[in-house]
Structures are given as C-alpha cells and as structure tokens.
C-alpha cells in the first residue's frame, strides 16, 4: 500500500470512530430517557473534564512511576488563572496564558 493510501485510510477510519462517538448518544437518547441519577452524574462532566484536561498538562507521565511536575505549565497557569478571575474574558485569558509560557521558556532558555 502506498504511503498516501495508508495515510488517507487511517484518517478516514479515525474520522469514522470519532464521528460515531459524537453522534450515537444523540441518536440513542431520542429512543431512551436518562434517569435522574444519570442526569446528576452528567452535571459534573463539564467541570471534571475541563479540570482533567488542565491538570494532565501540569505533569509529565512516567508510567509505573510518580509523575513529575511540568514546571513551565504550572507556573504559566498562575497568571492565566489570575487573569480569568480579574477579566472573566476568554480572549484575555488565552493571550495571558500563551505570553506567560512564552516568557517562561525565554527565561529558561529553551
């Protein structure tokens, strides 16, 4: 198989499984109703998933061993969180975050 076909087939397969993950809950929920407990469970999804995406970036994984702290990301999170509290504006928050990490890497020299 040529490299091009290999790549295209992989992209199509990955696209299909991701699409199914996205749409199947919508199709199934038209047929079934969720119980009160499941709805309560789902009400925690937003904060947990966003925290997990954030926290997992603060560490470097070493499977089987304790993770190490990703200091640049941890330090950059400080001004980012502060800008969230002060501005409540996503654009400002993202710009502060990117600039913070940029400055930290500049100082650290890598």
């Amino acid at each position: 198989m040529s490299t091009f076909n290999y790549t295209i087939l992989t992209i199509l397969g990955c696209g299909l499984v991701t699409w199914l993950s996205r749409i199947l809950p919508f199709i199934l929920l038209k047929k079934f109703n969720l119980s009160e407990t499941v709805l309560e469970y789902l009400s925690f999804v937003p904060i947990v998933i966003m925290s997990a995406l954030w926290f997992s970036s603060l560490f470097t994984q070493h499977l089987g061993h304790l993770p190490t702290v990703n200091w640049p990301n941890l330090i950059a999170s400080g001004p980012t969180l502060l800008s969230a509290i002060l501005s409540k504006n996503l654009l400002v928050i993202v710009l502060v975050g990117v600039c913070s990490l940029g400055v930290i890497r500049l100082i650290a020299g890598n």
């Binding site: 009400s43 925690f44 937003p46 904060i47 966003m50 925290s51 995406l53 954030w54 970036s57 990301n73 950059a76 999170s77 980012t80 969180l81 969230a84 509290i85 409540k88 996503l90 928050i93 993202v94 502060v96 975050g97 990117v98 600039c99 913070s100 990490l101 940029g102 400055v103 930290i104 890497r105 500049l106």
Partner: peptide, 28 residues
C-alpha cells in the same frame, strides 16, 4: 513552534472556561 508558548493556548482556554463555569453554575 513550542518556543512561542502556542501549545499552552488550549490549556489556558480550559482554565478560563473552567473558571467561568464554576462562577456561573447554579446547579452545583
């Protein structure tokens, strides 16, 4: 590309969205 801190954009976005969610959520 890592030099410019661009890879932190999405983390910063989640920090912001998380904070906005916490202060706005009335159910919890």
């Amino acid at each position: 590309p890592a030099r410019f801190g661009l890879d932190f954009a999405i983390v910063a976005m989640f920090i912001g969205l998380l904070y906005l969610q916490v202060i706005a959520d009335k159910r919890l």
